[in-house]
């Protein structure tokens, strides 16, 4: 009998690592929880506002909400990719301003197609992103300094070029304006475009090696170097992507508003970074999803729109955005500490 009572495995093979089964899901659960709670907050906010003012959710209300959110969602998607690598791109607001104005100047009084405008915007944005990216990755200048510098340089260029002039909707070809106001099956083009870019980015980050490497770089740069990941090339690409998306957003800005002044999207960079961080992407890189960032962008936009509907002074919007940002970063720190400790405890048992 005693022979059959022997354990199938030597006892010590399983002993050092009983952490196993549930450990992974814990960290993932925390992230899910974060995305879930933002989603819940969003739904609550929309419901509450709707109860106070039912016009918030009529056809036009929903359309406005989607249109307002789409550019911020787009920018947040681009920003996420950069923040995941433990970097930041503060120049996106000015890139939007520059490309919106440049595209406007290019098409004013012509009959260029919407596609041409989009391509021009993307190309111009990519160039801006490549300059920032090259300085950060190959020049080894801290991202904060580079992109802050780029923010002012691009803004300055934009103002010098515009010289107080503005692009008038009357001069913008109809094909371009239709892109901003038209819709398919009742859904405006803008949010569709944003959703496509968002989904493609999310898929790329998950399904492709270079996407995973962006996470690796942000999580542990030294280990990434030892693992042979081409860090500089990846970071450069992340900035080029962020720039391209900002350029696309600039072209869409023109399509949406028609009338563009030189400082369009001025100050947006901080809203974009807030959206990304509120959406669960760690400012220290390596953690989070673009879906979360998009939810963050949606939440910030909705707060803005709800305040208008509720007739609250728009100054509150900034205060609320700031408070959310602080809350998000503080919870990140606390939660990360707690999960690390919890995981470690499980490993020790």
């Amino acid at each position: 009998m005693s022979a059959t009572l022997r354990a199938p495995e030597p006892a010590d093979t399983s002993q050092p690592s009983p952490a196993g089964a549930k450990g992974g899901s814990l960290a993932e659960k925390v992230l899910r929880l974060r995305e879930f709670s933002i989603g819940a907050a969003l739904v609550l906010l929309i419901l509450a506002t709707w109860l106070v003012n039912p016009s918030f959710l009529d056809d036009q209300g929903i359309k406005d909400l989607l249109l307002n959110a789409s550019i911020l969602v787009l920018l947040a998607t681009g920003q996420s990719v950069v923040v995941l690598t433990r970097n930041i791109d503060l120049s996106v607001g000015s890139v939007v301003g520059l490309t919106a104005f440049a595209c406007g100047s290019f098409v004013s009084g012509t009959d260029h197609s919407a596609v041409t405008v989009l391509l021009l915007g993307i190309a111009l944005g990519t160039v801006c992103g490549l300059v920032s990216g090259a300085l950060v990755s190959f020049g080894r200048v801290p991202a904060l300094v580079v992109t802050l510098g780029m923010l002012y340089v691009i803004q300055g260029l934009d103002h010098a070029w515009a010289h107080g002039e503005q692009i008038n909707a009357a001069n913008v070809p109809d094909a371009v304006l239709t892109l901003g106001s038209g819709s398919v099956l009742g859904i405006p083009y803008l949010p569709i475009l944003s959703a496509v870019v968002l989904a493609a980015t999310a898929y790329f980050l998950r399904a492709y090696g270079s996407g995973r490497e962006l996470y690796a770089i942000g999580s542990n740069p030294e280990a990434a170097r030892l693992a042979g990941i081409p860090i500089r090339r990846r970071v450069l690409t992340a900035y080029a992507f962020s720039g391209a998306v900002a350029g696309l957003a600039g072209a869409l800005w023109l399509a949406r508003f028609g009338t563009v002044v030189a400082d369009a999207a001025n100050g947006w960079e901080l809203t974009v970074v807030s959206a990304v961080v509120v959406g669960g992407i760690a400012i220290t890189g390596g953690v989070g999803t673009v879906w979360g960032a998009a939810l963050g962008a949606l939440l910030l936009t909705t707060i803005g729109s709800a305040l208008v509907v509720l007739k609250v002074s728009s100054f509150w919007e900034q205060a609320i955005t700031g408070a959310l940002l602080l809350a998000a970063i503080s919870t990140d720190r606390v939660v990360r500490g707690r999960t690390t400790r919890a995981l470690r405890k499980r490993s020790r048992q």
Binding site: T13, S14, P16, S17, A19, G24, A27, E28
Partner: peptide, 21 residues
């Protein structure tokens, strides 16, 4: 390697021995 580590678990919080594994 004869260890019981979940491949899906995040590396955060692993003991040094498990990290070595």
């Amino acid at each position: 390697l004869g260890v019981d580590l979940d491949p899906g678990r995040t590396a955060r919080g692993l003991s040094i021995a498990d990290q070595q594994i």
